[in-house]
Structures are given as C-alpha cells and as structure tokens.
Simulated assay, not measured.
Amino acid sequence: MKLVRFVFIVMVIAVLGFSITAGAADKVKVGYLHTLAVDGQFWIGMNKGYFQEQGLEMEPILFTSGVPMMQALSGGSVDVAIMGAVISNFPSRGVGKVFLINDIEWNTASLWARPETKAKKIQDVKGQKIATVKGTTAHVFLHTALKANGIDSGKDVEIVSMDMAGAVSAFISGAVPFVCTWEPFPVQIREKVAGAVMLSSAKEFYPNAAIIGGWVASNKFHEQKKDVLKKIVKAWAKANDELVSKPEESLKLIHSKAYSNIPFSDIKASWNAQKCETSKDWVKLYEDGTVSKWIGQVEKVFVEIGSIGDWVDPKNFFDPSIFLEVMKGK
C-alpha cells in the first residue's frame, strides 16, 4: 500500500511539474498604435488565441505615435513595437531591428483644410500652419506631397507638431487651418468640420512614396529571443492570412473587440486605405528586395526632413531571416 501511495505521489508531482513547465508562457510587452493598419492582425491574433497557441502572453501597451513608442523600446519599457513609417526612422539609428512587415499604408494619410481657408489644392498651404506629428507616417506623406508640388516643408510652411489627437482637435477648433493626419481621424474631421476639404491623400504618390508599417524588436530582444520572435511571426501569419482571405469576417471581429467606439463603415474605410498581402506573397517581396527598397525610400524622406542624419542601408536594421525561416519551415 505504501509503495502504491508513493508511486501515485511521484506521478502527481511529475504531472504537475510538466503542466507548470508546459504552461509557462513567454511574456512579451507590445507597444502599438491604435489604427487598423498597425494593429489589425494583432487583434485578430489576440482574440482568436493565435499568440496563446504559440505559448505567448502578449501585453498590449498603447501609444499615440511611433516616436514615443520607439523611445519606450529603446528604454526597455516594451519588447516589440508595431508602427507605421517610424520603422524607417529609429531602427536606422541603431534603435531596434525590423523583423516583420504588416502592410502597405498606401492611402492612410491625408491633408485637410478648414473651409474658411478656401484652399482647394496643395499649393494653397504655402505660408500656412499645418498641424501633424513630426517624424511619423503623416509627416512623411506631407513632405512627399509638398515636395511634389514645389513646396519646401522646412521653409515654405510652418509645421506645428503635437500628438495626433491634439493636432486634429486643434484643427476642429479652428486653432490651425490645416492638418495632416492618418486613419481613422478623418472620421472626426468629416463629422465635426462642415465643409472641410481633403487636399490630398497618400494614394496619389503610390508606389513611389509607399509607406510600410510593421514590427520592431528591441536590440536586446532581437539578439536574445529570436525563438520568441519566430513564435510571433507564426501567430501573425495565421492572423494575416485570415484577414486577407476573410476580410469582412475579420473586420467585424476587430471592430467588436477593439474599435466598437466608431462605426463599422469607418473600419472598412481604413481597410480600403491599406494593402495587405498573403504571407506567401510577402515572402516574394522580402526576397526580391522590394520591402528593403520601401523601407529605404521612407528613410530618405526622414533624412530630407532632418529627422535623421545620414542614410543607412536597410540591411543594417531590417532582418528578413526570421520571417523567411518561419515561412519556409511551414
């Protein structure tokens, strides 16, 4: 009897020990921006349990723009960060490694004028104040649009930089005549500023000014936890392909779980402003150099606007191997 009891106790301890080991999840602090082009796949993965399937415990931490998020990444407050154009900024300066691309933000940014300005075209902003967030997707688009129309963004206009919620509020109140923003903020503009005019949007400069967003890992996390990054890629790929193959169903899930405060029609509008590829198609874009080219061309804009110094080849801060190893190992 004692022997049986002993064997039983040993078996229980073994089972409990296995359960504890098997259940020990890798904890990841994730900085993100609350805009569909940035966090769409993330919320699918979170709510469908795809990250959990990979043994990941993801802690979402919200930021209002990519600049403070990258500062948090640099300081160790977050392990990975999901963002737009800023993946071409801080990583080029040695802060973090880009390891995963979300989508192409082909029409997420836009330039707006208040009705009393009587502005009808981009040239009408010359000599005026424009509110936006410097060093972000909106700023990259604004610089590109102005340059294409013979306007120097550093000399011919006054850029008033503030967080995007503040920039849009200032525009709505009439404190600034123009704002350059991103989805879904145009929803507020249309609702609260009767007669507001959209002077331009990013699609007018695609693909020469294509902006891509994605995931950046801190240098330490990239160096020490590539196995965890591969798990993130596996979960992301499942969510991404679901989003691409079943957009209506996926968008309804995202709306109900993360964007219930805005109309579903606005989520669909945001979806139409971005381009998502299947994971298989992303493999081609990684391998043929397209992704690296797009990262590099946005980086050149950051050099032109003075956000960074010299241009750095993306191969120094973009690591495609993690994604490619996961996809080819499927």
Rank of each mutant, 00 (worst) to 15 (best):
G195A: 00
G55H: 05
S307E: 12
G96H: 01
T181S: 11
G75Y: 09
P60Q: 11
L111A: 06
E248Q: 12
G174N: 05
F317S: 05
L36F: 15
F171D: 00
C180M: 05
V80W: 06
L56I: 12
S321H: 09
S256Y: 08
W215V: 04
G309S: 11
L73P: 05
K147P: 02
V197H: 04
T137H: 06
A37R: 06
A194M: 07
W294A: 04
E223C: 09
Q41T: 15
A235W: 01
V291K: 04
K27R: 13
M69F: 07
L36S: 06
F323W: 07
D156E: 10
V86K: 10
K226M: 06
V140A: 15
T35M: 15
P60S: 10
Q188Y: 15
A217Y: 08
V140P: 01
F90P: 04
A196K: 00
V15Y: 12
E191N: 14
H139M: 12
A273Q: 05
A22C: 01
P184C: 03
S173Q: 10
F42R: 12
V216N: 06
K203T: 10
T181C: 02
N107E: 11
V157N: 08
G296C: 12
I172E: 01
P115S: 01
L16C: 14
A235V: 02
D313G: 05
S92V: 11
P68A: 10
S74W: 00
H255G: 08
Y206P: 02
K293H: 14
L251V: 05
M198Y: 00
V133W: 12
F185P: 00
N149L: 09
G75K: 13
L243K: 01
A196E: 04
V67N: 13
T136H: 07
I159L: 15
G84N: 15
S260N: 11
A37T: 06
G76L: 09
K97P: 06
K252I: 02
Y32S: 04
D266L: 07
P177M: 11
R190W: 00
N272S: 09
T132R: 10
V157I: 13
I101W: 09
M1I: 10
F42E: 14
Y32M: 11
G154D: 09
I101M: 15
W282N: 06
E287L: 12
D152L: 03
F178G: 03
Q71G: 13
S200W: 04
V312N: 05
I151R: 10
G66I: 13
F221C: 08
E57L: 12
K231Q: 14
T117K: 07
C276P: 04
S161T: 15
A175P: 00
A24D: 04
W271H: 15
K155Q: 14
Y286P: 02
D319P: 07
D26L: 02
I9V: 13
A25N: 11
K268P: 00
V197M: 05
K268M: 10
A145E: 08
V28F: 04
G17I: 05
W311H: 14
E116L: 01
G214I: 04
K300S: 14
G23P: 01
S279D: 08
L253I: 14
Q52L: 14
Y286M: 08
E277R: 12
N208T: 10
S321V: 03
G94I: 08
N272F: 02
G309P: 06
K192F: 04
I267P: 02
L73R: 10
I9H: 03
V95P: 06
E57A: 13
G296S: 13
M11V: 14
T35S: 15
P314L: 09
V10K: 06
